[in-house]
Amino acid sequence: MSRFFKSLALALLLGASMPAAFALDDFAAVGRPATPAEIKAWDIDVGPDFAGLPQGSGSVEQGQAVFEEKCAVCHGSFGESNKVFSPLVGGVEKGDLVTGHVAALLRKDFPARTTFMKVATVSTLFDYIRRAMPWNAPKSLNNDQVYAVLAYLLNLSDIVTDDFVLNDRTIRDVQKIMPNRNGMTYEHSMWPSPVFSGKPVKPDTANTACMSKCKAAPELVSSLPDYALSSHGNLAEQNRSFGEVRGRKTAESAPVAEKPTPLKIAETAGCLGCHAINAKGVGPAYAEVAAKYKGENASARLVAKIRGGGAGVWGDVAMPAQEDIKDADLQAVVAWVLAGAAEK
């Protein structure tokens, strides 16, 4: 057999195509198999049918401790705070557990929409807390802590009792009494197929391209109040100073800034999101820091620590690396902290 035919026969044997016909969708050399350990490391999603739910358990009481330590600073001790995000807890009534519809969603006098008023699937909360919370240290909780802290939130919402233990079995019972579990509808046309609605649904509005005398007169129902015109700064500066229009002058231009105080710098740099002057936040109070390093020459070490981030001095929670603040600004802030962080 000639060489050519030998290789052709081999190619046919292996199911390979002729060289000239290299299929462009065959990327044999591209990518590699994912190992089971790799899939396990990333495959953390939990579906509404609890597919992917890990084993573990946690009590309401344990959850309260986790929440106090790791969550309350942003969400409030009872999940009620709206300082950092909308409240997690509130607005759920006992009757909702029976109907599976949160009644307060219909109340005009109750504008708030908390997490528990909306969510239909308890799997969503487990999945989300495990992947994303605490916000500043995502994926730092172990599975038992996730169960515990979720048990605590369910208890705050009066869905489970004080002695409840949430685990990979009891979570299925919780699903049966989730307050808004029947609150979802799929009667809409905004998914490309009827996989949810079961049948094709037409768009819910049907305007026409009428061209003349489409109505008697325009009815003006809302316009921007004057105070709101300046709520977004000076609009003159948000438009070019040339072209077919100008921006309206709605505020004085920002005065040329005086040299900002260290307090102002710390605020602008985002330090005050985690540090207060006299109270412990995610990080230590600046007054505590000043007291701790009194009489020491700690300035250079602290500058480096803040730049690089790190944990261990005040607890397990790490300060993320502060890369954006300028050197001179950082030095000024540290000097101010060490001098007692005066609040003027």
Binding site: H101, A120, T124, G183, T185, S189
Partner: peptide, 27 residues
Amino acid sequence: QPWATKDEAVHYMDLMPDGQHRQYTSI
């Protein structure tokens, strides 16, 4: 199966006048 992730089961749902949320509104 859909996943009902946080940003399709707590947010990005459209509240209707009857108190129901339209879930998986995407287009």
